[in-house]
Amino acid sequence: HPLNSRWALWFFKNDRSRAWRDNLQLVTTFDTVEDFWALYNHIQLPSKLSSGCDYAVFKDGIQPMWEDSRNKKGGRWLVSFSRQGRYSELDRLWLETLLCLIGESFEEQSRAVCGAVVNIRTKRDKIALWMREMESQAAVLHIGRVYKECLDLPTKTIGYQVHADAATRSNSPVKHKFVL
């Protein structure tokens, strides 16, 4: 059962002695439903990863970083949660994120979706859906509403951030341009 796009799984493991880019590894790519599950069933769930690790699943050819030309002017819908929420919600929300990515749940806006990232961190874990520059706010909000519905989250739990704001922030938190 072919997927609409070919996807790549990336793994990031924080090693402070190396450059950020060197800690990011392309694991593999897949483009069928069967290969997706073969991979998913074979790797650790996010809740089993150590702090400082990330998984990223992006359309093949797009690197999971702000610097990629497809990401540069885009943004992300972000859900973040404290450690208490981790064991009940993290793995479920990551799987739902992957299913809406590979199933292309965003209809005509699916083309604008670049990928998704889960960050395992000491204070708060994060899951984000990344998208390229959008032609309208309505398109950004459409993706956010569909995504929130996929995750089955209550109101005001996901926020949209522009990558350029995140990339240039100093110590201040990144503002949410929209909250759903």
Partner: peptide, 20 residues
């Protein structure tokens, strides 16, 4: 055409043996 799959369809394949 564009291939869209809903979550139930995708989940049906999770534990399906690869060669059938």
């Amino acid at each position: 055409g564009k291939k869209q799959y809903d979550r139930e369809f995708l989940l049906d394949f999770q534990f399906m043996p690869a060669c059938i």
